[in-house]
Amino acid sequence: MSVLNDTVDWLSDSANWSGDDGIPHRLTQHLEYTALTVAIAAAIAIPIGLWVGHTGRLRGLAVVSTGALRALPTLGVLTYASLFSGIGIKPAIFTLVLLAIPPLLAGAYAGLESVNRQTIDAARAIGMTEWQVLRKVEVPLALPLIIGGFRSATLQVVATATVAAYIPGPGGLGRYLIDGLAVSDYARIVGGSVVVIALALVLDGLFVILQRVALGSRPSRTPTAA
């Protein structure tokens, strides 16, 4: 019970809620890393996923690639990246981007593949171009699954970004775990973990709401070509 009590004391200590090492600052850093990582990964994965889902080309390669990227050992990639580019935020972001690409890519192409082919054929039959089919039919209908890819990627990055503190330079909530482990400060370790869990739950809840909104706003009929 002493660790639990010490954790409660650590979380309630006003000293841990101010300054560069305070929870608000570390939380902001963690969110910034997460947003930057997911944005870069999305810029890479979403266009590729939409192209694969729309055309059906290279689907096998996309599936194999996502599986291979998921299998990469995060700590190993982070270590090698830091050896090549030096310590700091760059190797951490690179590693997290590799982690975020698979769920985003899978969500994009799986979302488009889930769209009823008869709906797509009907859109083409009324004169829609391929771009209009993608923009007005496939993406709106696939949006819940695409958001699901963002949800999975974001939660994985939030959890794994704590590992980025393994190398000097990156901040974020992972500093509480790594720095606390170095001095056997278990209250700091558990307290930092609690904050990471709380952040993940809040973000997960927001994505659940977004998915429900997207599901409810999907078009019920094929839009016109105009």
Score class of each variant (00 low, 15 high):
residue 1 M to N: 14
residue 3 V to D: 14
residue 4 L to Q: 11
residue 6 D to P: 02
residue 8 V to F: 15
residue 11 L to Q: 00
residue 16 N to D: 08
residue 20 D to K: 04
residue 23 I to H: 09
residue 24 P to R: 14
residue 31 L to I: 14
residue 31 L to S: 11
residue 41 A to P: 04
residue 52 V to Y: 05
residue 54 H to A: 15
residue 59 R to I: 05
residue 62 A to Y: 05
residue 70 R to P: 01
residue 79 T to V: 04
residue 82 S to C: 02
residue 84 F to S: 13
residue 86 G to I: 09
residue 90 K to G: 02
residue 92 A to L: 04
residue 92 A to R: 07
residue 94 F to P: 00
residue 94 F to H: 03
residue 94 F to Y: 11
residue 96 L to V: 00
residue 104 L to A: 07
residue 105 L to W: 03
residue 106 A to C: 08
residue 110 A to D: 14
residue 111 G to F: 07
residue 113 E to C: 00
residue 116 N to P: 06
residue 123 A to N: 09
residue 123 A to I: 07
residue 126 I to M: 12
residue 126 I to N: 05
residue 128 M to A: 07
residue 139 V to S: 04
residue 145 L to Q: 13
residue 154 T to F: 03
residue 156 Q to M: 12
residue 162 T to L: 03
residue 170 P to Y: 03
residue 172 G to C: 07
residue 172 G to Y: 04
residue 173 L to P: 01
residue 174 G to R: 08
residue 178 I to M: 12
residue 179 D to G: 01
residue 180 G to Y: 05
residue 181 L to I: 10
residue 183 V to K: 06
residue 187 A to C: 01
residue 188 R to C: 00
residue 203 L to G: 04
residue 203 L to T: 14
residue 205 G to W: 01
residue 206 L to H: 02
residue 207 F to W: 11
residue 212 R to Q: 13
residue 213 V to A: 06
residue 221 R to V: 08
residue 222 T to C: 13
residue 223 P to V: 11
residue 224 T to G: 15
